[in-house]
Design a protein around this nucleic acid. Structure first.
Lengths: 146, 146
DNA sequence: TCTAAATGGACAAGTAGCTTGTCCATCTGG
DNA sequence: CCAGATGGACAAGCTACTTGTCCATTTAGA
């Protein structure tokens, strides 16, 4: 019965640890000035066909906040804004090679953070865990921050 | 192989959903002006024997930020600062009845948020999930925010 | 026991990442 | 063809943090 309460605490603790470890590792690999929220932005931009307004919705922030974030990332050379082929108002976002490198670093960090979990649980239960979580995870926009 | 990457994304998505649902429910039950970080503070204070400095460490923020948070909670009637029995500098934090009521509301919200997961997975796998997460969850201070 | 360093806490000022509000250019649908 | 919706920018303001400083009290070392 109290499993329910325990589970929510566990999920929150794990996600806090994950975020912190990934952020630490990425910083350490020379990608400074990046915050965790940028990872979610990179993921969306890497998916392709992303405008600032799309990004805002995906991140759950205002267009202005997203525009500021994009400006920051552009200034640091992680992102470029290209003209949109079908809409003169919009700008298509693209990752630069530096941006892709940062994404790869984050991926590696995520794998490294998860590796001890796999070791602790063993392959079989680890796979089950991933499958179970996949069944209950929500779709829709990411809501970074709390 | 890519399970590792998927898992971290899943955990982050779940925790984002949890935080948001709990926060929404608690607000809706009349506890306004509370932010998710306050839940972590309440949990620590409820555990007893907590000073502002303890809280700061637990939340991973500066003493000043914790003091401000406590001042806010005290102003809203969720927390009282009592003299510390053995240290004239320190103040012991305690939840008021209102604070405990807010905590109970958050607990209920957490259970409600988790309930569909239990339904989706079934009792057996749900119990396994909780057990597995308990094995891999970190100890130590909570780091709210990302 | 005396004193230097550490600790709990408060006050002040500054900062970063968001918000709301407003505006313009462009696209879309009746 | 025009009214409303949409992508984006500029400006101002808010808020939850930060660093810096200070004081009272406790702790530890000589």
């Amino acid at each position: 019965m109290d499993d329910a309460l325990a589970l929510s605490a566990l999920v929150l603790a794990l996600s806090g640890q994950l975020v912190q470890e990934i952020h630490t590792q990425v910083s350490r690999q020379g990608f400074e000035g990046l915050r965790p929220v940028h990872g979610f932005a990179f993921a969306r931009i890497a998916a392709g066909d992303t405008t600032t307004a799309d990004l805002a919705e995906h991140l759950g922030v205002t267009k202005q906040a997203a525009a500021q974030l994009v400006g920051e990332l552009a200034g640091k050379g992680y992102v470029v804004r290209r003209p949109h082929p079908h809409d003169a108002r919009a700008r298509l976002l693209e990752l630069t090679e530096t941006g892709r490198a940062a994404t790869r670093a984050a991926d590696r960090a995520a794998r490294a953070a998860v590796a001890p979990w796999r070791a602790e649980l063993g392959e079989a239960r680890f796979a089950e865990l991933v499958a179970d979580l996949a069944r209950i995870a929500p779709r829709g926009p990411i809501r970074p921050g709390w």
